[in-house]
C-alpha cells in the first residue's frame, strides 16, 4: 500500500507535550516555604500531615462533584447531602457493632470501619442514582433551576436525616487502635490522619488509573471535552453520566464517613458546612478537572493548617484568599478544562 499522505517530514521533532507543571509544584513549594516560618521542624511535619489528611478527605468529597460538572455541566449544590448521608449511614454499622469498634484489635477495627464505608458508599451511590433521576434529569441545561432544585434537594435531605436519625448530635468515636499518634523524633503524627492520607491516595490513584487506563475512564474524559462526539461514536452518554453521578455520590459518602470519624460527632449539617470548602477546591482546581481538584484540596487544607498555626485570624479566610489569588493568576482555575 502506498503512503499517500505523509505531511510531517521524517525529521521533524514530535510536538512538545505541554504538561503544565507549575500547579504540580505549588503544593511542595507552599510546604517548603512554610518551613522557615513555622520554625520548628516537628511542628511543621505535624501541620503538614494534618493538612494533607484534611486535603485528602476534601478531595474525596470534591472529586465526584467536579467530574459530574465536567461531564454534564451540572453543578450539584446538594452534593453535601451525600456527605451527611454517608456519615450517618456509617453509624448504622459503627454503633451496633460498638464492641468491634472498641476492641483493641487493628483487624476488627479496620473491618468494622471497612463495612461502614462499604454500606455508606452503597447507600449514597443508590441515593445518587435516585437524585439524578428525580431531581436533576428534568433540569438538564437549565443552570438556574439546577442550582435552586439541588439546594432544595439538600434542604429536604438534611431534614430527612433528622427524621430518620433524630435531631440530636450523634457521637461517632474513633476505633481504639486508630486513636493516638506515632511519635517520630519530636513530631507527633496522629494515626487517623495517616489513615486518611492512605485512603485518599488509594482513591486518587484508582481514579487516575480508571480515567487513564480503562475504556470507561477514557470515555468520561472524552465526554468532559465533547459529549456530542462521544454519542456520535455510538456510546450513550446518559448511561455514562448516571454511572459517574453514582460514583461521585458514593465518593462523597466515603468522604463523609472519613470526615465524620475525624470530627467524632455528627450533625445533619456536616455536609453543608463542608460544601463551601468543596466548592472553593473545585474552583481553584478548574471546574471539571480531577487533577486540579486534588491539588486544590491539598493547597486549601495545607494553607488552612499553616495559617491556623501562624496567624489564627487569617485562617478564618485563608481559603477565600487562596481562591482569589489563584483566580487572579488563572481565572479558570489551575487546570482549565477544554470545553466543546
Amino acid at each position: 500500500m502506498t503512503k499517500i499522505l505523509n505531511v510531517a517530514p521524517q525529521d521533524t521533532a514530535l510536538p512538545k507535550v505541554r504538561v503544565d507543571m507549575v500547579p504540580l509544584l505549588l503544593v511542595p513549594v507552599l510546604a517548603l516555604l512554610m518551613l522557615p516560618l513555622v520554625g520548628s521542624f516537628p511542628t511543621w511535619v505535624t501541620l503538614t500531615v494534618a493538612g494533607l489528611a484534611m486535603g485528602m478527605m476534601v478531595f474525596m468529597m470534591a472529586s465526584g462533584l467536579t467530574l459530574i460538572f465536567g461531564l454534564m455541566d451540572v453543578l450539584n449544590f446538594g452534593h453535601g447531602a451525600f456527605v451527611s448521608v454517608g456519615a450517618f449511614t456509617a453509624t448504622m454499622v459503627l454503633l451496633p457493632m460498638r464492641s468491634w469498634v472498641e476492641a483493641d484489635s487493628v483487624w476488627m477495627n479496620l473491618s468494622v470501619v471497612g463495612m461502614a464505608i462499604l454500606l455508606a458508599m452503597v447507600v449514597t451511590g443508590l441515593l445518587g442514582w435516585a437524585f439524578e433521576r428525580i431531581i436533576i434529569r428534568p433540569v438538564y441545561g437549565l443552570h438556574l433551576k439546577q442550582i435552586l432544585i439541588t439546594m432544595g434537594g439538600m434542604i429536604v435531605a438534611e431534614q430527612l436525616i433528622h427524621v430518620i436519625w433524630g435531631a440530636e448530635q450523634i457521637p461517632l468515636p474513633l476505633p481504639t487502635t486508630f486513636r493516638g499518634a506515632f511519635i517520630i523524633g519530636d513530631a507527633a503524627l496522629e494515626k487517623y490522619r495517616l489513615i486518611a492520607v492512605v485512603v485518599g491516595l488509594i482513591v486518587f490513584v484508582s481514579m487516575f488509573l480508571v480515567l487513564n487506563r480503562t475504556k470507561v475512564g477514557l470515555l468520561i474524559r472524552a465526554g468532559v471535552e465533547n459529549g456530542e462526539m462521544v454519542e456520535a461514536l455510538g456510546y450513550r452518554i446518559r448511561t455514562l453520566f448516571v454511572g459517574v453521578f453514582m460514583a461521585g455520590s458514593a465518593l462523597a459518602g466515603l468522604g463523609g464517613v472519613m470526615w465524620g470519624l475525624y470530627k467524632e460527632t455528627l450533625t445533619a449539617t456536616i455536609g453543608a458546612e463542608i460544601t463551601v470548602l468543596v466548592f472553593i477546591v473545585i474552583i481553584i482546581g478548574g471546574l471539571g478537572s480531577v487533577g486540579g481538584c486534588f491539588i486544590g484540596a491539598m493547597l486549601v487544607a495545607l494553607a488552612a493548617n499553616y495559617a491556623g498555626f501562624l496567624a489564627p485570624k487569617v485562617a478564618l479566610v485563608s481559603d477565600i484568599l487562596l481562591m482569589v489569588t489563584v483566580l487572579l493568576w488563572r481565572p479558570q482555575g489551575l487546570y482549565p478544562v477544554a470545553k466543546r
Partner: peptide, 11 residues
C-alpha cells in the same frame, strides 16, 4: 457563568 457566580458568592 451563573454557576460560578453562585459558588463565589457562597464562598
Amino acid at each position: 457563568k451563573a454557576i460560578f457566580y453562585a459558588m463565589i458568592t457562597l464562598a
